[in-house]
Design a binder for these strands. Structure first.
Length: 321
DNA sequence: AACTTCCGCAACCGCAGCCGG
DNA sequence: GCCGGCTGCGGTTGCGGAAGT
């Protein structure tokens, strides 16, 4: 018996996601989590396969994603990591909080490769190009189709030996990525822990104590986003539609740190009397508390088992608002 | 203005790896 | 150890917009 396809493809939708589908997916995941991607489409009413849902969530809808171009620092990290790890994009992405493997892969293929070639560096071996190759690059001639083994980009033994150490260094460096590494001419990148919930205020739609409001007033306008960010959502839905989107989503208002606080990236809580830091970790486990009812601590379902919360950085701040 | 080519990105596809039975 | 199901990964494709003619 052959391998079962990941999903019954008959009647399943393909291609770009619509905002309605996004809403369904977000609502479902925020309510139920994503315990089983395969079952998710049926349960959420989406005519997509589980893989497609997973990809959409991971690469686009996830709340902790950064959008916009990679900063110089991030780019350098990608180059360094690629030299060590090769095309293991997910590994590389794990060193860059808020970036996805797909994003890094695309950026590598479209920007970094060219940049390195221009600099006379072979993007595959990270060694200087041969004279011939370099001259080709200098002439801006066609892409170098030098045969290579992409699957085995491992460097010398020395590299391998020091890899552990280097990775440790990179991890350390990682902690300072957001604080001093990001290009300030790009989107004002916000880290997950910079999103605060305003527990005290309750200015809109639900007055119940079990709903949390998060102000959106501090969100940056889409125009401040990197021009290269071409979001499906933003391309489809005009600005005021995003407000509707949020309303329909019954989304919490988010209260952001003041700009002066933006560089506080040390992962510490920034609790004041009436604010609570949502994100003090790098992964999505913070979501768990919202995906289940937590009446005791103020983060709760809406009474019908549907927790309300949407958190994000750029995809939410720029595209959805 | 119309057409063509190029480029970047989101999404798809197929395979590998992991895990439980 | 084997098998089947599921997830994750990396390569590739195709669409839409930008740039060029």
């Amino acid at each position: 018996m052959g391998r079962q396809p990941c999903c019954d493809k008959v009647g399943l939708k393909k291609g770009p996601w619509t905002i309605e589908e996004d809403k369904k997916l977000i609502n479902f995941i925020l309510t139920n989590g994503h315990c089983c991607w395969r079952a998710l489409p049926k349960l959420s009413g989406l005519l997509r396969c589980g893989k497609s849902c997973r990809l959409r969530w991971i690469n686009y809808l996830r709340p902790d994603l950064k959008r916009g171009l990679l900063s110089e620092y991030e780019e350098q990290m990608v180059i360094d990591l690629h030299a060590q790890l090769g095309n293991r994009w997910s590994k590389i992405a794990s060193h860059l909080p808020g970036r996805t493997d797909n994003e890094i892969k695309n950026h590598w293929n479209t920007h970094i490769k060219k940049k390195l070639r221009k600099m006379g560096i072979d993007p595959l071996t990270h060694k200087p190009l041969s004279e011939h190759e370099a001259s080709q690059q200098a002439q801006g001639s066609k892409k170098s189709f030098v045969p290579h083994d992409d699957k085995n980009p491992k460097q010398d033994q020395e590299d391998q030996q020091t890899k552990g150490e280097q990775e440790q260094d990179l991890e350390k460096n990682n902690t300072s990525v957001s604080s001093d590494g990001f290009c300030i001419d790009e989107v004002p990148l916000l880290n997950p822990h910079e999103i605060l919930i305003d527990i005290s205020s309750s200015h809109h739609h639900h007055s119940n104590d079990d709903n949390v409001n998060i102000n959106t007033s501090k969100f940056t306008s889409p125009s401040s986003s990197s021009s290269s960010t071409s979001s499906c959502i933003s391309s489809v839905v005009p600005g005021d539609e995003f407000s509707k989107f949020f309303d329909e989503m019954e989304i919490l208002d988010l209260k952001w740190l003041s700009s002066g606080d933006n560089n506080s990236n040390d992962g510490k809580f920034n609790n004041t009397a009436d604010t609570m830091n949502l994100w003090d970790i790098n992964d999505l486990s913070s979501l768990d508390m919202f995906m289940n009812d937590h009446d005791d601590d103020g983060f709760v379902g809406n009474g019908n088992g549907c927790s309300r919360m949407v958190l994000d950085q750029d995809s939410w701040t720029f595209d959805l608002l």
